[in-house]
Nucleic acid binder design. Sequence first.
DNA 1: GCCTGGACTGGAATCGTTTCCATGTCATCG
DNA 2: CGATGACATGGAAACGATTCCAGTCCAGGC
Lengths: 338, 338
Amino acid sequence: MSSIRSTKSTIRDIASHAGVGAGTVSRVLNNHPHVSDSTRAKVLKAIEELNYRPSFSARQMRTGKSQVIGFITDEIASTQFAVNIIKGAQAVAWDYGKLVLVVNSDGNRAIEYEAIEMMLERGVDGIIYASMFHRQAQLPDSIHEVPAVLIDCFLPDRSLPSVVPDEFGAAHEATEILIRKGHRRIGLINLGGEAKPAIEGRLAGYTAAMQAHGLYDPDLIVHGGDEGAGRHGYASAMKLMKLTERPTAIFCAQDRIAAQAYRALHELGIAIPNEVAVMGFDNHIDVATTLSPLLSTMALPHLEMGQWAVEYLLSGAGEPLEPVQVKLPCPYIERQSI
Amino acid sequence: MSSIRSTKSTIRDIASHAGVGAGTVSRVLNNHPHVSDSTRAKVLKAIEELNYRPSFSARQMRTGKSQVIGFITDEIASTQFAVNIIKGAQAVAWDYGKLVLVVNSDGNRAIEYEAIEMMLERGVDGIIYASMFHRQAQLPDSIHEVPAVLIDCFLPDRSLPSVVPDEFGAAHEATEILIRKGHRRIGLINLGGEAKPAIEGRLAGYTAAMQAHGLYDPDLIVHGGDEGAGRHGYASAMKLMKLTERPTAIFCAQDRIAAQAYRALHELGIAIPNEVAVMGFDNHIDVATTLSPLLSTMALPHLEMGQWAVEYLLSGAGEPLEPVQVKLPCPYIERQSI
DNA sequence: GCCTGGACTGGAATCGTTTCCATGTCATCG
DNA sequence: CGATGACATGGAAACGATTCCAGTCCAGGC
């Protein structure tokens, strides 16, 4: 059918083909008022016939808006399930008619700085910076030249709006859920590594809930190692099970830790959830659903954070963004381990 | 320090500040010859002082190159580990000084068509279309208006270059590896669903290897169901183990299937790998490494496909791309299950 | 001393839109 | 019936770069 047009047509081609002025074509294109129906029809017909496609770069040059937002992330693939942040961000941007420029820095700060520079040169309408785990971020001053929102991280001076998971609330709720199920001795195997806010928030949430019910006992808390991938979960679970008054539930601050805890419990011949209940954290789908029994866990609101960030970036009708600091709830995903 | 400049400076501001013509500034910016060192120095100084940043949209309008490539994918998050395709693509684009516009269609064809349209309007230098599982794709004619490369899929008429995993070769090698280890009775639990080339390729590779060694027996093959997430793996493994002459190795055409097979073998009290070896497929990290023993598997070359696609798109110095059909090898990842 | 050609430079034209201003038309109102 | 707006429209200017053309300068060859 419509053969590939070799030479692009411009708004003036449309104008002369339709027998009108260039300004009129532009008015039709942008749905401006004060265009008669007959003229509009002629223009639309010409657009159709010449297979016209407007040039965004020309439009951007004139209006200053690129209809593109930049998305920078430090480690897109190290914790793969977090791609939902991108997915959510892109989906909302799409609803606003905007496209997303993505760059993955692999944690290399020089790349992040250069990426921001490149995005600025391209005149993006805004920038989202997403960390793949909850931490404090460090960004160049130039980030302030354009609206920007942070995901899963925050600036030392809080000068940029940010959205992070409510670590404290989630850990508190997880613990409460276990308590409500009748558990009194609840162990915590915490994270290791550099995700400070997550480590501290989850610990604090757990502690608060335990103390509120007079169940707190420091022996029940095992602090994580740095081995990554939750590998210390095995030894930690073993340690917990050796306690004289051993826990009837374990709250693992990460699904991967839970996977290793499962392994320990299996070896000890302890049944999940009958003898010991296990609560995870992250809703790391591939882990939670290959475990048997399926792991109950607190879900990190990745998708929602991505959505929130873009929504906030774009909904403000141009005026500077308030640097609000938002915490999103982490829903409880009930499966079989509790 | 350097205060945020409120009003952008243009190339003409630089020109007058440096006391030269606009053309000269442009020549400096683009490293053209025939600029004296002293002039160059003056211009560079002015750029520095005015904190000048060139406008890509103006540049694009004049040159026609956007320095951006489009990346469309059908289901970025359904099989999360495949984000490596994006990661690889973006990394190579970065090396070429280009940024990547990403849109996730969620399998919605209307979105894909519109995404291509939007990318064309923005004048992308090329488009990558990536499927998250190996299949035949369907794209609008307009895709031919710009250089394009397909990942993990192909067009019915093969009119676009594509890069896919070598399913046959990988399955063949996997089977050979098991045979070399001394196995004679090797079961195959194949995929279900709509990933035709993967299903057929893996079956053919297995079959060829078995036949070449005179080991082929149709009873050893279990065809997958549609339940998804490899859930049929449990029943399939059970079935295989009930064979009178039961297999000493199982080749699972997907790591998730292997996870379910593990469950069946555990229940039957069959030790992996001593009594039965298990080979996976996909190198679905989170699955393969939470299983115990760790799963040996064939890795899908996601990162490499992403890299190859962009490399091929960008390396051709402008002339139309040959529609080559490339198959990338799937490396064997040795762990503990064989 | 004149001519030639190369190096360097300034400035106009151009890319494809949007926006603003000026003009023309027509119905309405006093 | 002339003045007044509201509406419709054409066309020029502007956005910020690149590129081409023409002009200046200077060294070297005759």
